[in-house]
């Protein structure tokens, strides 16, 4: 927590904004159960969507039979799919973190702490959203690449 303003506490009196932050922090004390429930709901919905998308990704496949690929190429689609799963799962977790916060940690219920936390959290969300977008794009690209490899890689002739 920092001093209440840029001029130092010895020159500071509470402003209207300071009072408003304090009132907000005080009000939050009476909404803790609702806040915790909404955060839990957000994570539950996000994780359910994540599981659904990952299950859907397994349906996007190329040639149904990897056994026909030549020895060196058999491992390529598997690696690509595993990387895609990792990217998509990470993208979901980052997006859920940005949208619903990280459960299990707290802040002091006073206006200064809340104001500082809000500034930090807003900046963090701004950094997380591009990460989620790039990870999603990478994951989908890897899924597509895995499908393409299964169709275009050399196969063993009977």
């Amino acid at each position: 927590m920092t001093a209440p303003d840029d001029f130092g506490p010895e020159h500071s009196r509470p402003t209207a904004a300071d009072r408003r932050w304090e009132a907000l922090a005080e009000e939050m004390q009476f909404n803790q159960l609702g806040i915790a429930r909404r955060q839990a709901e957000g994570w539950r919905n996000g994780l359910a969507a994540c599981a659904t998308l990952l299950a859907t990704a397994t349906l996007v496949k190329g040639r149904p039979d990897f056994d026909r690929l030549t020895e060196g190429w058999k491992v390529v689609p598997v690696v690509l799919i595993l990387l895609a799963f990792g990217c998509l799962a990470a993208a979901f977790l980052v997006a859920i973190r940005a949208a619903h916060g990280r459960p299990g940690s707290y802040v002091l219920a006073d206006g200064s702490s809340l104001r500082e936390w809000t500034g930090t959290e807003v900046a963090r969300i701004g950094r997380l959203i591009p990460w989620a977008a790039w990870l999603s794009l990478a994951g989908l690209t890897l899924v597509l690449a895995a499908a393409v490899v299964t169709w275009t890689a050399p196969v063993v002739r009977p």
Binding site: R102, G104, S105, Y106
Partner: peptide
């Protein structure tokens, strides 16, 4: 001044209980 879950969506990992 209790510790609370701030906002309606989220908390700050930089403000851990031990630090507050």
């Amino acid at each position: 001044i209790p510790r609370i879950l701030p906002g309606d969506k989220g908390v700050d990992e930089a403000e851990q209980p031990g630090d507050t």
